[in-house]
């Protein structure tokens, strides 16, 4: 028997094990998930050794790079996190990871997302939009719609309210009105995301169903 056929049969069996979750949690499903997690962890370990540690740490050390000592030391300190007694030594590595990660994430979010999206909201009314050949009226309406959606969605997340004697704090009138519109845009966004997640799952189902049918037909037809 060809090795590909064996792997195909294994894939078929594991796929059916996963489908068994339709009837609830069962040992077959647990076996399949366990195999998947174990195989993925082993594969990740091999990939990390051969494509991270060797090229980025061992080879530079062999070549005499002093800079490679820093990741070596930090990695060693990070391993001390396994010991409760020496775990504090790993805080240095954690500080480097969290600090550098936070700095990069904040800078990227500010320059790449906030400024980029604000500029895009402004450009919707600018000359750049007219170069697309679309009607200026339509571009203006689209720009207003985007602006309204952005402003009202941001207004929804303003939870400040005015206190009144004997009553619960409530938003001011304009804020309440804007947040109501913002809720509509947020619901549209969540609906789009849900639709995307649903279609992604349906696509995966189609792909697996096709695999099952083709495998079974192959086995039957030989």
């Amino acid at each position: 028997m060809n090795i590909d056929v064996i792997w195909t049969l294994i894939s078929l069996v594991l796929t059916l094990f996963i489908f068994s979750y339709l009837f609830g949690d069962n040992p077959v499903f647990r076996i399949a998930t366990g195999i998947f997690v174990g195989a993925a962890a082993g594969y990740f370990a091999v990939v990390i050794i051969y494509q991270v540690i060797l090229p980025h740490l061992v080879v530079p050390l062999i070549q005499g790079s002093i800079l490679a000592l820093f990741p070596l030391i930090l990695s060693g300190l990070l391993l001390t996190k396994l010991s409760p007694r020496l775990g504090r030594l790993g805080n240095v590595s954690m500080a480097v990871l969290v600090g550098s990660g936070a700095a990069i994430a904040i800078g990227g979010a500010a320059l790449g997302t906030i400024f980029g999206q604000v500029r895009a909201a402004i450009d919707a009314f600018g000359s750049q939009a007219n170069t697309s050949g679309t009607s200026p009226l339509l571009l203006g309406v689209e720009g207003l719609f985007l602006l309204a959606g952005t402003v009202t969605a941001l207004a929804y997340f303003n939870f400040g309210g005015k206190e009144q004697a004997g009553q619960a704090p409530a938003r001011v009138a304009i804020s309440a009105w804007l947040s109501g519109i913002g809720k509509f845009f947020i619901a549209l966004t969540f609906g789009a995301i849900f639709a995307g997640v649903l279609t992604a799952g349906l696509t995966a189902l189609v792909e697996r169903a096709d695999f099952v049918i083709r495998t079974i037909s192959t086995l039957i037809t030989g």
């Binding site: 980029g116 500029r119 895009a120 450009d123 966004t189 995301i193 639709a195 995307g196 279609t199 992604a200």
Partner: peptide
């Protein structure tokens, strides 16, 4: 398709030049 709604605004802003979603 599940991440396309979150990435399309970057296409609208010109930061992404093309998207094939789902």
């Amino acid at each position: 398709a599940q991440s396309a709604p979150m990435l399309l605004p970057y296409y609208e802003s010109g930061q992404i030049n093309g998207v094939i979603a789902g």
